[in-house]
Design a protein around this nucleic acid. Structure first.
Lengths: 238, 238
DNA sequence: CTGATGACCGGAATGGTATTCTGGTCATCA
DNA sequence: TGATGACCAGAATACCATTCCGGTCATCAG
C-alpha cells in the first residue's frame, strides 16, 4: 500500500502542482508527462505510481481544486448557518469556481486550456452536476422549509443545473453588451435562485440552525470523496 | 432592382428550401453551392443574385426560420394578451425553437450540423441575444408592471440570456439523469422565469391588454427585420 | 527487498506536399 | 436583360514519412 504516508502525499502534491502550473500555461494537449515529472523532480514512472493514466492525473488536479473550493464553502457554512441557503451557497460556489483558474476552465468549458480533456469519453469533468446539486443537500433544504413548498424536488435535478450552467456559460455570447463584474454576476445568480427556488418570505434563523449540521455533513462527505479522487493510486476511481 | 417580384421570392424560397434540407442532411461544411443550385433547379450564379456569399445564404435559412417562429409567437399574442408575459413568451420561444431543426441546431450550438458556421467571425448566429431579449419588449413590460418592481432593467440584459441559455444548453451534460419531455422543460423554464423576474402577484388582465399592442408592434418589427435578412441581395445585411 | 527510475515500444499526432474540391466571377447566351 | 456554367485561385483533403509521447517493465539504488 502506497498512500497514507505523509511523504507520498507531499510528492503527489508536488506532481499536482507541476501539472496544474503547466496545464494553465500550455493547455491540456501540450503538457507531457515527462515535463510534469521533470518539474516535480521525479521520474516519469513515479507519476504512474500515483495515477494510472494521464487522464486520471489531470482529473486529480481538478479534484484537488474542488477540495479547496468545498473547504471554503463549508467553512463559510460553519461560520454562518444562513450560508446554507441555496442562493448563498451557489453565489459562493460561483465566485470560488470562477476565481480558481483550473475550475473556471472546467466550468466555462474553456477549450483553449482543456481542449481535448473536455471531449473525454463520458468523463463529465468533475461530474459537475453531482458536484453542483447534490440531492442530499436539496433534500435537507426541502425538509426544513428552505425551498419553495410547491416545488417538486425532482424538478430541481433539471432546472437548477440548467440555470447555473447558463451563468457559467453565457459570457462568450454577450460580448460587447454590459460587462458586469464577477461579484455582480454572482449577485444576479443568487437573486435569480432565491426568487425562483426559495420561499417568498425568508425562513426563520431557527430553520437554518436546524438544517446546517446535516448540510455540512453532506458537504464534508463530498469533500472527502474528492480528496480521495485527488490522491492515491490504490483508490478505486473506477 | 431584383426583389419585390413574386417570382423572385418563390425562387429564393426554393433555394432556401434546398439549402435547409441539405444543411440538415449533411451539415454546414459538406453542402456545396452547386448542390444547392441543382436541388433548387437553378444555375449556381443565380444563387449569387440573391445572396452575396455562402455565409449570407445560410444566415438567410436561419432568418426565414426565425420569421416562422416569430409569426407563431405574435399570432399567439394576438389571440391572448396574457401571452406577452415574459414566462409565456419564453416558454413558447423555447418550444418553437426546439421544434424547428434549424433553430434547434443554432440555439443548442449543435456542432454536427453547424460546425464551421458557428465559429464564423463575430457573426453571432442570428444575433441570438438580440432576438431573445429585446430591450424594447422588456421596457414595455416594465412600464406596465409586468416585471418585478425591484428589478433594474439593465440587469436583465445579462441575467435573462444567462438563464435561457442554460435551458438551451444543459441537455448534453445531464445524460442519464431525469429525462424530461420538451414541454416539461419548457414549463420548468417558464416557472423559473415567472418567479425570478415577474411580480409575485399576477397583474390584472387590464395590464396585459394595455401592454399587448406595443409588444406586438415590437415583435412585428423584429419579424420584418428577419424577413428582410432572409430575402434579397440588394438589402444591406452589412 | 522495496520502491524509484528512465530506456524502450507501439500507436497516435504532426508536418510537408501533391491533388482535389469549391466559392465566387464574368463572358456568353437565350 | 436576367440566367447560366466554364473557369480560376485558393482552400481543403489525402497521403506518407517522421516525430512525439503515454504507458510498461527490466534494472538499479538504498
Amino acid at each position: 500500500m502506497t498512500e497514507s504516508q505523509p511523504g507520498q502525499i507531499d510528492r503527489a502534491d508536488r506532481i499536482l502542482d507541476a501539472a496544474k502550473e503547466l496545464l494553465l500555461r500550455w493547455g491540456y494537449r501540450r503538457v507531457t508527462i515527462d515535463e510534469i515529472a521533470r518539474h516535480a523532480g521525479v521520474g516519469k514512472g513515479t507519476v504512474y505510481l500515483h495515477w494510472r493514466s494521464r487522464e486520471q492525473l489531470f482529473f486529480a488536479v481538478g479534484a484537488r481544486e474542488a477540495v479547496a473550493m468545498l473547504t471554503a464553502v463549508v467553512a463559510a457554512m460553519r461560520q454562518d448557518p444562513k450560508e446554507i441557503a441555496l442562493h448563498r451557497y451557489m453565489r459562493r460556489f460561483f465566485l470560488e469556481a470562477m476565481s480558481r483558474p483550473v475550475l473556471r476552465a472546467i466550468f466555462t468549458r474553456d477549450g483553449d486550456v482543456l481542449d481535448r480533456f473536455l471531449s473525454s469519453p463520458a468523463r463529465r469533468p468533475l461530474q459537475s452536476s453531482k458536484l453542483l446539486a447534490s440531492r442530499e443537500y436539496l433534500g435537507v433544504l426541502a425538509d426544513n422549509g428552505l425551498l419553495r413548498a410547491d416545488l417538486r424536488p425532482a424538478d430541481l435535478d433539471y432546472t437548477l443545473p440548467a440555470v447555473v450552467f447558463g451563468f457559467f456559460g453565457i459570457d462568450p455570447f454577450l460580448a460587447d453588451e454590459v460587462e458586469l463584474s464577477l461579484p455582480d454576476k454572482a449577485d444576479q445568480l443568487a437573486d435569480t435562485l432565491r426568487h425562483a427556488f426559495e420561499p417568498a418570505k425568508p425562513p426563520s434563523s431557527a430553520r437554518f440552525a436546524a438544517a446546517a449540521p446535516p448540510v455540512i455533513a453532506v458537504f464534508d462527505g463530498h469533500t472527502d470523496d474528492y480528496r480521495r479522487a485527488a490522491y492515491g493510486a490504490s483508490t478505486d476511481q473506477r
